[in-house]
């Protein structure tokens, strides 16, 4: 067993876990934060993307002990109460989701994309940057659109630098 302390969505948590516990298991099984999904368990599909110290990472191949002390944001920590993050709002507004399973990872990746690439994103950049996220429902058309407008809205709201 290993003791792991994380700050998850603004709350500090310490748990004794099996040393092989993955970050996604820590979040889903120990914290019951089930918004982070496991789509492939090989770091390919991006359904498990969370922010680790502000950077998007795939939690399905990351040991919880390896990020001991880190600050984690999951999809559940993105909205401020009922006020959606601009990227969440954009996915809804532009029909950027269907079954919803890849959506948390898509949104977490998209927010990170804006952090790295700015708020004025063209389609080519968005498509290239989505290399690590697979969606089987939407054909990406509306995801690309949602990220474009979500990035723009983040710029206006001043959330890009957060």
């Amino acid at each position: 067993m290993a003791s792991v302390t994380l700050s998850v969505n603004g709350k500090s948590v310490t748990r004794d876990v099996d040393a092989r516990t993955l970050l996604v298991e820590f979040l889903r099984e120990h914290m019951r934060l089930t918004g982070t999904h496991v789509g492939c368990d090989t770091t390919q599909c991006g359904c498990c993307t969370v922010h680790v110290n502000g950077e998007a990472m795939k939690s399905c191949t990351l040991l919880a002990v390896a990020v001991d002390g880190a600050t984690i944001t999951t999809i559940e920590g993105l909205a401020k109460g009922q006020d959606l993050h601009p990227m969440q709002a954009a996915f809804r507004e532009h029909h950027g989701l269907q079954c919803g399973f890849c959506t948390p990872g898509m949104i977490m990746s998209a927010v990170d994309m804006v952090r790295r690439k700015g708020t004025d994103l063209d389609d080519k950049t968005i498509r290239e940057e989505l290399e690590g996220n697979i969606c089987r429902c939407t054909g990406y058309h509306n995801i690309v659109k949602a990220i474009h407008y979500g990035a723009e809205a983040m710029g206006k709201a001043g959330t890009a630098a957060e």
Partner: peptide
């Protein structure tokens, strides 16, 4: 706009897992 989206974009969907 879709009624079901709020729970999916906030991580509150309830899938079998």
């Amino acid at each position: 706009l879709r009624k079901e989206d709020f729970r999916f974009i906030t991580g509150k969907g309830q899938y079998t897992d």
